[in-house]
């Protein structure tokens, strides 16, 4: 676990993650800040209708063809009952 953390702290890993995020947003002309806003808006909208796991929402954008994939895990009904 510790070794993993050391690897993650190395600068190449940071560079790779930063570039992936930046280039995806630049390719569709949508800044990282706007991507964050898109994510929040999506969560907000879906939440009005179903119970979702907000932490696990993933947005992926592919280039050829350009498609936005959004993965929003829905929480089980049992949990909903727990809330009630």
């Amino acid at each position: 676990m510790k070794a993993f953390q050391i690897v993650k702290k190395r600068s190449a890993g940071y560079a790779r993650e930063r570039m992936k995020l930046l280039l995806v947003s630049e390719r569709i002309d949508c800044s990282p800040q706007m991507m964050k806003m898109l994510r929040n808006d999506l969560i907000h909208t879906v939440k009005k209708y179903v119970l979702i796991d907000e932490e696990q929402v993933h947005i992926k954008i592919t280039q050829e063809p350009s498609v936005i994939y959004v993965k929003i895990p829905v929480q089980k009904k049992r949990k909903q009952l727990d809330h009630d």
Partner: peptide, 19 residues
Amino acid sequence: DMILRGDMMSVDDVIEILA
């Protein structure tokens, strides 16, 4: 040397980013 110690992006990293 820098790639091995994790301070430079590798060939695979660059290809993955630029596709």
